[in-house]
Nucleic acid binder design. Structure first.
Lengths: 367, 367
DNA sequence: AAAATCTACTAAAACGATTTAGTAAAAGCG
DNA sequence: CGCTTTTACTAAATCGTTTTAGTAGATTTT
């Protein structure tokens, strides 16, 4: 058990010599003009058009020279713009969230925006509470990542993997139909007919849409989905364990299958562990298709075949559309829906199906 | 290539009916008292001691009834407290960062704090720029995660895995000596003498301290560190690829070894891939010890033996000490250093060393 | 030459809190 | 009763901007 140990010797006094930041008033006094003038000039207001360039130069120079930075709160108080977004995520975890957040980051930073994060961990009361806290913080808008929005909010919202049709929200979603088609087509081409599925947790935004698409695609390929071969993820841990448990349930049903299409890479990894413990080799005995293409999918053993979601891009799009909405003002038109395309990435976890159910007999577990 | 497609039909007007938030002045008018009084009472200022409980109750009730929430920027402007921390990270990635951020989150939220994040991606100019942006944003302090702080900053700093001795910063570090001892002791007990190492990137805060501890521990166990068996991670990708490349270099040296101690789990995973491609089995031919114990270390194939860092806890400690420092005021004493303890987690990637260099002959790669 | 327009600014009122210095009325004290 | 103290408040300044409505003087127009 790790224990912390606070260094007894190491106490310090923080005699910090913050040289006070210079205010607009001080700067104005310095150049011998009024704060109003400086504000107008520095913000390039059209009202300042009549001011001679020489004066403007003088002002800009002084601002640079004295390292003037407008006071954030003072400005926000006046303008009612905080240049801050709220980001609502289930948790900060390896796979999905991190990638989306990086995309958001990249867009925001170049627009001079920052974001504050809140993790609701699927707790209903937090899902309610956080938008209020964001409102208190005067965010200009929020991005919800894999988080259900159940009622309209008093600021613009972009929802990554959002599927609810709520006033004021822009949903950024994957083309799930195509994703399901890609996965099943790949498996069918390899000769798989008995396919098992791991559905997402009930609280995951994509679960339902994805499942509907899978059923549709299965119909298209004339594959029957056997109830015994469908397991659902339970619990909100971001570890592969939930996939491991779901796969155990699948195996316990003793209904033969030659392939698994998992809800995401993390659960696919857990499932692989379960299969191997049960004595099945992946992909020789059972093929596994993941979803997302997270960082380590390519380096897992075996390397995961997966449906790639452009997560980074989805984050970028969310940030971008939200910023545009904010810039355009509250009652301009905005897209209700942006769809992005998946991509099949074939690696080592899928191969041709073994003929006539040989693999389906449960073997002795190898340890 | 994923393409985005913005739904042509789906345009909406955002006729949002934000009912304006109530201000202190309005609330005051409503209860028939002055804003001053309300402020004093609501903030439980000692100045309000003389105000009868009945009046206080009336005020609190009205505040609740009219759902009064103090305006964030107005308050911050006056009090010069933003209840916001800046968090500086290399990037938001699966392993290290996410876990630490979760720890930070948990502490901050219960203290009514939020944080803004900036990813510097090891770019020198961003490392310089972000603290300034944080200052502009009036943060009350910053937490630097795996990020070098090279000069004093005008606000309190907590550095997770920080090793530089700078005025005003609290370093939260792992007991690297012990970590190195745990890893080498484990390997030595399994009979390993020829051990390869992957050092961290030059820009990683822990690289140097860890390496020094490893050398010390090696001396202790009378293990010689051969230069040909030391590779360093290069490049700032958070993918296992950098470990894969380093391991390739190790193999290219054609100097036999029976075990690898990697800088972190991610690079260990990359290295395992490289070993397997070269025809070595892990752990039968070469044992691998990782570092960190990230989420998927336990589910990798083989499951990673690793040195666990209490990352979540380190995040908590950083947040906690920083909040305390802020609460205590700028010139109170504070700890310079907090040390946390590592833990050896033995899984499947290590086993007894093969005797007399049999494993060290390079085999045919298996595909 | 008077009126209209421009030019180059500024005064002052917000924004929505907090906080210091009071003050009027009531209570306590000798 | 007169004096001090306490009680229950409030006025007004302040934080650092932005922005609207002017204004004084110069220039142009008629």
């Amino acid at each position: 058990m790790p224990r912390k140990k606070s260094d007894a010797r190491g106490k310090k006094k923080g005699g910090s010599s913050h040289k006070r930041a210079v205010s607009l008033k001080e700067l104005a006094a310095h150049v011998g003009l009024s704060p109003s003038t400086l504000s107008l000039v520095l913000n390039e207001s059209p009202v300042a058009d009549s001011i001679p360039q020489a004066t403007k130069d003088r002002i800009f120079e002084a601002a640079k020279g004295m390292n003037y930075r407008p006071h954030f709160h003072a400005r926000s108080l006046r303008t009612k713009r905080s240049h801050t977004l709220g980001v609502l995520v289930p948790e900060i975890s390896g796979g999905y969230t991190a990638e989306v957040m990086n995309g958001i980051e990249e867009q925001l930073l170049k627009a001079g925006y920052f974001y504050i994060v809140a993790c609701h961990r699927h707790k209903a009361e937090l899902l309610d509470e956080y938008p209020k806290l964001f409102l208190d913080r005067c965010v200009d808008g929020i991005i919800a990542v894999d988080t259900p929005i159940t009622h309209p909010l008093p600021f613009p919202v972009a929802a990554v993997s959002g599927h609810s049709d709520i006033e004021g929200v822009t949903n950024i979603v994957l083309n799930h139909r195509r994703a399901a088609m890609l996965a099943l087509e790949h498996l069918v081409k390899l000769g798989h007919r008995r396919i098992a599925f791991i559905k997402g947790q009930v609280f995951s935004s994509d679960t339902e849409a994805r499942w509907n698409s899978i059923r549709e695609a299965a119909r298209e390929f004339e594959i029957t989905i056997r109830p015994a071969l469908v397991a659902q993820l339970k619990g909100d841990s971001p570890s592969p364990e939930v996939g491991y448990i779901a796969a155990k349930r699948l195996l316990a049903a003793r209904e033969p299958f030659t392939a698994l299409f998992a809800f995401n890479d993390i659960s696919a990894i857990g499932a692989i562990r379960a299969f191997q413990e049960a004595g099945f080799r992946v992909p020789e005995d059972v093929s596994v298709v993941g979803f997302d293409d997270v960082d380590n999918a390519a380096f897992h053993n075996p390397a995961l075949t997966t449906i790639r979601q452009p997560l980074y891009e989805m984050g970028q799009i969310a940030a971008e559309t939200l910023l545009r909405r904010i810039a355009n003002g509250d009652d301009a038109a905005f897209p209700e829906l942006v769809t992005v395309e998946p991509e099949l990435v074939v690696r080592q976890s899928t191969s041709t199906a073994k003929e006539n159910g040989k693999s389906q007999r449960r073997k002795q577990a190898n340890r």
